[in-house]
């Protein structure tokens, strides 16, 4: 930069306008949850072959799994919004770990139950491309929304923040995949392998996009005025 630091400070403070402080992370997480749940419910309605099937499901494990996925998604979203606030505690990062462990534990207990009931056949992961497609479709709106909202903050750890955004979106989209299918999954291992596999791919893809999606905000007016000043001083030198 060719400008002196005191000159830059003068430019930053000139025509200073008041700014509205960003809200608490949990508030943004709630707003995101409302938007994302609306998209999830809409997608379930579009993709579902038989919505009545949901009313007949009595398996508490199935609903617990969905609650764990939802909690993982919402807590990951809260961490995303906390991670773009400079100086916020890193302990927040552990928040989604608790529901994620609960989610994995429910899947593990399902696998154990299948194994006890059907032996090794109960542990076979069946091909489940429809779930992958449903999860990918279901993650688009939540991930795009959370990244757009997080851009208001400071991208201190863009890759990690975007990965968590991917986790938040993928966890919610897992609900789409589980509830929109016409038949229950043949084995819990199918859910574990295909849902968690797709989730990891979405997290990885979001992390890759992080540095581009969460760049430091640029005040276009300010940059234009700095460039105009630089041009003016160049002309003065000549």
């Amino acid at each position: 930069m060719s400008m002196d630091t005191p000159e830059l400070i003068d430019m930053l403070t000139r025509d200073l306008r008041p700014v509205r402080p960003t809200r608490a992370p949990w508030l943004y997480a709630s707003m995101w949850s409302i938007v994302s749940m609306a998209s999830v419910i809409g997608l379930i309605a579009v993709l579902s072959h038989n919505l009545d099937r949901l009313t007949t499901i009595r398996l508490s494990r199935f609903w617990l799994e969905q609650v764990a996925a939802l909690t993982t998604g919402v807590t990951a979203a809260a961490v995303v919004f906390a991670s773009v606030v400079p100086g916020s505690s890193r302990r927040w990062l552990w928040l989604p770990v608790v529901p994620a462990i609960g989610w994995l534990a429910i899947l593990a207990s399902g696998c154990l139950r299948d194994w006890m009931a059907r032996g090794s056949a109960g542990l076979l992961p069946h091909a489940d491309w429809p779930c992958t497609v449903a999860m990918t479709l279901g993650a688009i709106v939540p991930v795009a929304t959370i990244l757009a909202m997080a851009r208001r903050g400071a991208p201190l750890t863009p890759t990690r923040t975007a990965a968590l955004a991917g986790l938040a979106g993928a966890a919610l989209s897992s609900i789409v995949a589980c509830t929109s299918r016409p038949m229950p999954h043949p084995t819990t291992m199918t859910v574990a392998v295909w849902h968690l596999g797709t989730l990891l791919v979405i997290v990885w893809a979001a992390a890759q996009a992080g540095p581009r999606a969460l760049a430091w905000p640029v005040d276009a007016e300010l940059i234009a005025s700095i460039e105009a000043d630089a041009r003016q001083s160049d002309r003065g030198d000549q």
Binding site: M1, M3, T5, L8, I9, L12, V19, R20, P21, T22, V84, V85, P86, R152, G153, A154, W216, P217, V218, D219, L222
Partner: peptide, 18 residues
């Protein structure tokens, strides 16, 4: 340059200060 970068960044995300 980094000092000025910090000042520009601070200015850009000043709304995040609580």
């Amino acid at each position: 340059d980094v000092v000025q970068d910090v000042l520009l960044s601070l200015h850009a995300v000043r709304a995040t200060y609580d």
